[in-house]
Design a protein around this nucleic acid. Structure first.
Length: 557
RNA sequence: GGCCCCAUCGUCUAGCGGCUAGGACACCAGGUUCUCAACCUGGUAACGGGAGUUCGAUUCUCCCUGGGGUCACCA
């Protein structure tokens, strides 16, 4: 039997890491068994699909190296004989099976209004019981049903759940039995004519030949519904494997809502009254939307707005989506490696591997049952290791591509030679592709924009010692000025000679004042590289300003 | 609350009746260093609790505790 797995997200612009891991496991399972991976779009929710019908997540899959055999066409992947791969385009198929179930008495029309249902749910909640549909619609005679339908009364179709226990066999979790009555008569066709997820999934998995369903553990209870539906429809049952969830370090479920949560908390803590204004002075968010969002945890701002507001308020949002990690400068192969490790292990002490290895070794019996907390520190460490293993050329190319997309100012301000020095100086100390830019903003600042905060290390480097750092800085300025060719080697030669003559060979005595003068703070790449990148004019100019500014602030002797 | 599932260092995990309970990240100490990193050496650190089964339980069974999932005309 051919192994067929599927990744079946609802349409969205962004893939979050939990989904990415599911996709990766589905991919690995199929690839390791000469099987196929189907990508199917679950867009049976008209509301959501119309709001965000973006397929942006496919970009994320591409970036991660997760390719699919069947599904929406993108580049040279996708297509296939089992389409269409959008559920919204398969309505006729579902309708046929739906009619059959109703005709066979295995499903029935129900006319309850959502108000009635809500009231009953609320009552169950108060009675501390699990809500189950009460089969009110079954009290209707066939004539009554026909009349209501003829009158055009809105209705749904519910599946008539057999009164029996349901056993789920799961390759990860083992076997579990839900007692009879646990699953109620759930809706399989909504009032708008669309099938519910449960119904569409069962039909599609069967028609697309899916042999193995790997999905998040939150679907575990749904599987019971899918099993009885398969039985009623006479469809084969795929093998199931339910994957544990990915958590935040604090133990909460990692969710796309986390970004809203962080921003909302920041706004409340700082007692910010209204939404920040955009550069033109207009509020970034409508006042009423803002108020609703602030007061209701279940309300989300759209991602773009959320990020704009966060940027305006200088709040850093957690990385949740694959795109977030890309922007932060993680390597796709490292993210895959790390994601794979959250919930699976190779079995020995081997934990650095690529997707090919994963595909070869991935097996369901080594999938962890427990949820994994997402440890960004370890991810960062893996990313650092991968970067350190790169050749300078590769790092330069990747850093350039990253800068082109996320840090264009560096490519604009630095010429190719300067950019190369920055890359070479940064590679072995960078945990991400973004770090060279993130920590070296002073390189692209205007010379007269540098500001000096008199922190402890600055005080020590500039004001202490005999002579003081400031005095040494003043002394070395003409030495640097006199260097004919301002490259790292010449700079080193000049500074070394100066240090021997004036600072007892202690490079730190002069490197720190220089570093502070040109960068505004005590941190920068190696000093010779830093000066070389900045160039002759910028270095002189910055030293002059630094001397002027800090002399004013120096403690009087 | 009902139902279902789960449980090894702080974190990700190895272990599948007998191990000084292993690795990785983090952390701590020392070294190296022009800053920050990185790097090198060493170290601290876990089987949630209680009953069984067994010559012997981290490993098997039960109970407790703790954690999670789910209870939509969302997926």
């Amino acid at each position: 039997m051919t192994v067929v797995t599927r990744f079946a997200p609802s349409p969205s612009g962004n893939l979050h890491v939990g989904g990415a891991r599911t996709a990766l496991y589905c991919w690995a399972f199929a690839r390791g068994r000469e099987g196929r991976l189907v990508l199917r779009i679950e867009d049976t929710d008209r509301k959501r699909s119309s709001e965000a019908s973006s397929l942006g997540f496919m970009t994320d899959l591409d970036w991660l190296g997760i390719d699919w055999d069947e599904g929406p066409v993108r580049g040279d992947q996708g297509g296939g004989d089992h389409g269409p791969y959008f559920q919204s385009e398969r309505l006729a198929i579902y309708a046929e099976h739906l009619d059959r179930l109703v005709a066979e008495g295995k499903a029935y029309h129900a006319f309850d209004t959502s108000e009635e249902l809500d009231a009953k749910r609320k009552a169950a909640r108060q009675a501390k019981e699990a809500y189950r549909y009460d089969r009110a619609a079954l009290a209707l005679t066939a004539e009554e049903v026909a009349a209501k339908l003829a009158a055009g009364e809105p209705s749904v179709i519910r599946f008539r759940t057999p009164d029996a226990a349901i056993t789920i066999v799961d390759e990860v979790l083992g076997e579990a039995t839900l007692p009879a009555g646990e699953v109620d008569d759930f809706v399989i066709r909504k009032a708008d004519g669309y099938p519910t997820y449960h119904f569409a999934v069962v039909i599609d998995d069967a028609m697309m030949g899916v042999s193995h369903v790997l999905r998040a553990q939150e679907h575990f209870n749904n599987t019971a519904k899918h099993i009885i539906l398969q039985d009623a429809l006479g469809l084969p049952r795929p093998v199931y494997g339910h994957l544990s969830l990915i958590f935040n370090p604090d133990g909460s479920k990692m969710s796309k809502r986390d970004k809203d949560k962080v921003l909302r908390t920041a706004v409340k803590e700082r007692a910010i009254e209204g939404p920040p204004a955009d550069p033109l002075g207009a509020p970034m968010v409508e006042a009423d939307v803002w108020a609703t969002w602030l007061g209701d945890k279940s309300v989300q701002l759209d991602l773009e707005t959320l990020e704009r507001v966060a940027a305006a308020l200088d709040v850093s949002l957690p990385e949740i989506n694959v795109a977030d990690f890309r922007r932060s400068g993680y390597l796709p192969e490292v993210l895959c490696n790390f994601l794979a490790l959250n919930g699976w292990s190779a079995g020995d002490d081997l934990e650095k591997f690529d997707n090919t290895f994963l595909a070869e070794r991935f097996h369901l019996d080594r999938v962890q049952k427990t949820p994994a907390k997402f440890d960004r520190d370890k991810l960062l460490a893996f990313n650092l290791d991968a970067i350190q293993e790169m050749s300078p050329d590769v790092f330069h190319d990747l850093a350039s591509a990253h800068a082109a997309e996320f840090r264009p100012e560096f490519l604009e301000r630095l010429d190719q030679g300067q950019f190369r020095i920055l890359c070479d100086a940064s590679r072995e100390r960078s945990k991400t592709l973004d770090e060279p830019f993130l920590v070296n903003g002073f390189l692209v600042s205007a010379d007269d924009e540098i500001e000096w905060a008199v922190t402890k290390p600055v005080r020590k480097a500039m004001f202490k010692g005999e002579p003081t750092g400031l005095e040494l800085l003043a002394q070395i300025r003409p030495v640097l000025e006199a260097i004919p060719s301002f490259d790292a080697v010449s700079i080193e030669t000049a500074i070394t000679a100066f240090v021997e003559a004036h600072a007892d060979g202690n490079l730190g005595r002069i490197a720190q004042p220089l570093r502070i003068a040109v960068s505004g703070g005590p941190i920068s790449p190696p000093i010779y590289d830093t000066l070389a990148i900045l160039g002759h004019a910028a270095v002189s100019s910055r030293i002059d300003r630094c001397l002027a500014v800090l002399s004013e602030l120096a403690p009087s002797k």
